[in-house]
């Protein structure tokens, strides 16, 4: 897509010598009357052609949008939810024509698969899991990991989908006797899985055998950290965490992300990078997403900020647009675009 609309650039962070920029590629509005809660990009096959489509989720409806030639988006499928509201979209890599969603009020109560019947293309939804679900993540090789329950009653399950999203296989992972907060796949090591726990540990599993390999205690300065990504390099694990509960400090302001390096053999860890806001920006971490080495966060101020983890600093800031605060930010799974959403259903697609 070429840029035809407003260009919104950067904002040089502190001592940035190479400011990044965000270029608006296209935008559309989901006219649903309920609150917009999530956005994602998926591959969807129609008439034998796989297309990069956008999924939007409001509290009571999930919609699939396909691209038209004119930088417009057309809504082609909707799934309605009348009993339990939608909390988040759970993309499952390597599966076509299937989306998972988590439903609940404050906590996840159900995970459902959304798909279309092959004959008449009518929308279907299938209940995959129900209960007190603490964390869920779609993994490569068509897998979905979820943890149900807390402490000693916790069950951690891996579900594997068939290529067409159909029949599935289930496997259990050894629970760590600590409540799991988030999961993260390890780039460069497909059979490893990380989890963060409520007592500030990072746990490492072997996905093939289900074994719990190690618990690593991380710095107690930030509680309830979320693990977004992990990379395996040269015998070490590099882990990107965010800190929604962190308090502002005079020295650093509000920490958004940190990059930790962990030696899995010794369970020792060292912080190598702390991502804070550039001067003049205020707010705490609300939600965020990390793809490769680029991290994006929505701040409580309604602004989106982006950090390059290799350069080690903030490279772009996107202030609220049309007087509407940002509430969602996701990297597209189908290209290098950034999806930014507002509560009223406006979705903006930027090239970074």
């Amino acid at each position: 897509y070429s840029t035809e609309q407003t260009e919104i650039t950067d904002l040089p962070a502190c001592d940035s010598w190479n400011p990044g920029s965000l270029h608006l590629v296209s935008k559309f509005k989901n006219p649903s009357s309920s609150c917009s809660v999530d956005v994602s990009a998926v591959w969807w096959e129609r008439a034998g052609v796989k297309e990069p489509c956008i999924i939007t989720a409001c509290e009571d409806v999930v919609s699939l949008w396909k691209p038209l030639d004119t930088l417009q988006w057309e809504k082609v499928h909707t799934w309605q939810f009348t009993e339990v509201p939608v909390l988040q979209i759970v993309p499952v890599p390597d599966v076509y024509n299937l989306i998972c969603v988590a439903l609940g009020n404050l906590e996840i109560r159900e995970i459902r698969a959304l798909l279309c019947s092959s004959g008449d293309e009518s929308e279907k939804q299938v209940l995959l899991k129900s209960g007190n679900i603490k964390a869920v993540l779609g993994l490569t090789k068509r897998r979905l990991v979820s943890s149900i329950g807390t402490f000693c009653n916790q069950q951690i399950q891996i579900m594997t989908f068939a290529e067409d999203g159909g029949s599935k296989d289930e496997q259990l992972l050894m629970p760590p006797d600590e409540t799991i907060l988030t999961f993260a796949e390890v780039q460069g090591m497909q059979d490893a899985l990380l989890g963060t726990t409520t007592v500030n540990n990072i746990v490492i599993w072997n996905l093939k055998t289900g074994q719990l390999l190690k618990k690593v205690h991380i710095d107690d300065s930030y509680q309830a950290s979320i693990c977004h990504r992990a990379y395996s390099e040269m015998g070490l694990l590099f882990v990107v965490l965010s800190h929604p509960c962190a308090k502002e400090s005079q020295a650093f302001g509000s920490p958004m992300f940190q990059l930790l390096v962990i030696n899995p053999k010794t369970a020792q860890s060292v912080r190598v990078l702390l991502c804070c806001l550039p001067q003049g920006q205020a707010g705490r971490f609300l939600e965020g997403d990390v793809k490769d080495h680029i991290a994006a966060a929505v701040l409580t101020s309604g602004t989106i900020a982006i950090w390059d983890l290799l350069l080690g600093h903030c490279t772009a800031v996107l202030p609220p647009v049309s007087d509407q605060n940002w509430s969602l930010v996701k990297w597209s799974g189908t290209d290098s675009h950034l999806l930014a959403g507002q509560k009223d259903g406006n979705i903006f697609i930027y090239r970074y």
């Binding site: 050894m174 090591m189 059979d191 490893a192 490492i204 072997n206 055998t209 074994q211 719990l212 390999l213 190690k214 395996s232 040269m234 015998g235 070490l236 390096v261 962990i262 030696n263 899995p264 053999k265 010794t266 020792q268 860890s269 060292v270 912080r271 190598v272």
Partner: peptide, 23 residues
Amino acid sequence: CSTADLGPISLNWFEELSSEAPP
């Protein structure tokens, strides 16, 4: 920070931990 703080590093940590951990 220094990688010395992390202790001895093994390139085969995943296989080694898998052989040591309970099944």
